[in-house]
């Protein structure tokens, strides 16, 4: 408790042993982490891992079963209403009113958040410009495309310029260009000192974050900067192999001893191995003997996806060793 309060000067979000059960199902299991002010914190995990449940507890709409935490300096258990004044929240569903126009949706939320009348117009124009909806301010929200709705929803959620914003899979179902633009916006906000807490399952988006937390089956299994995760948390090494007929080569490489996993990756293969040097030699040797023209075999920094998959598999192995089936 004390550590939670002490840190609230530099941190935007602190949680300790946060837990939520639905009946006998544990959706979030004793999760602890911190998010510093101004940071973009990415919350990663497969569907159903507990991302949304965690976010809902942080924004004060779902009571935790156990554990403590603060958001923007307010206790998530007792000061939910204070929290709501200091955060913005946008969910994957873009929950705007379909039958209201762009302008009316903004007006509604600026009424709810009580935007100072003097700033109201400016904020509204900012949202409309930010979302690129200058020509659609009087259109019903129902007819807008996904990217527009998403930016409008973000705009409505941050009309009151909250210091912390929570985005729950904000880019699901949005085209790559819109996603790019959306992240530019997030950077802009973060540049102004806004703390952004974002959940996603896009690996490329994870790379944009300052720090990441990885949640799996309700438990936080890793946390750190993308760099730390990639270099420190991966127990195995990753090799990149570029050669002819990678699909056939895959089968050959899998036979070598000490090879954990082979996967197609772009034009080549990613091979997870226990030890780089020995494996490079073994693979080059084998492929040359079998007549594959090899362009490259070398150790690389693993991608987040590699780390992610390897951490999850390690977790699964630890929990259910008897069920593991080796390929």
């Amino acid at each position: 408790m004390n550590s939670v309060e002490k840190n609230s000067n530099e941190t935007a979000v602190v949680v300790q042993d946060l837990e939520r059960r639905f009946g006998s199902f544990i959706a979030v299991n004793r999760v602890s982490f911190e998010v510093k002010k101004g940071e973009i914190f990415g919350f990663l995990g497969p569907n159903g891992a507990g991302k949304s449940t965690t976010i809902r507890m942080l924004i004060g709409v779902l009571a935790p079963t156990d554990g403590v935490g603060t958001v923007a300096g307010f206790d998530i258990r007792t000061q939910a209403e204070e929290i709501k004044k200091h955060i913005g929240y946008m969910s994957q569903k873009f929950s705007l009113y379909d039958d209201l126009t762009v302008s009316e949706n903004i007006d509604f939320y600026s009424g709810i958040y009580r935007i100072d009348p003097a700033r109201k117009k400016a904020r509204k124009e900012w949202v409309i410009e930010m979302a690129g909806l200058e020509h659609h301010r009087h259109s019903r929200t129902a007819i807008l495309s996904g990217g527009w709705k998403q930016r409008l929803a973000l705009g409505c959620a941050i009309l009151h310029e909250p210091p912390v914003i929570f985005l729950d899979e904000p880019t699901s179902g949005v085209d790559p260009v819109s996603r790019r633009q959306f992240w530019d916006l997030i950077y802009e906000l973060s540049g102004k000192g806004v703390t952004v807490f974002v959940t996603t399952h896009y690996m490329d988006e994870a790379e944009y974050c300052d720090r990441l937390g990885l949640i799996y089956r309700g438990e936080l299994i890793a946390a750190g900067t993308p760099e730390t995760l990639k270099t420190e948390l991966m127990q195995e090494d990753v090799l990149e192999v570029i050669c002819e007929r990678p699909q056939d080569a895959m089968g050959e490489i899998e036979q070598i001893e000490g090879i954990k996993e082979v996967a197609l990756f772009g034009k080549g293969l990613h091979v997870v191995v226990e030890e780089t040097e020995r494996a490079v030699a073994a693979i080059s040797d084998l492929l040359q003997r079998r007549g594959y023209a090899v362009t490259r075999v070398e150790g690389i920094v693993p991608s987040l996806e590699d780390v992610f998959v390897s951490l999850i598999e390690a977790r699964d192995r630890a929990e259910q060793p008897q069920q593991e089936v080796k390929r």
Partner: peptide, 14 residues
């Protein structure tokens, strides 16, 4: 049903 309530209860509205 439409999910707009979740957005609404995340605001300070009482």
């Amino acid at each position: 049903e439409r999910g707009t309530m979740e957005q609404l209860i995340s605001t300070p509205v009482k």
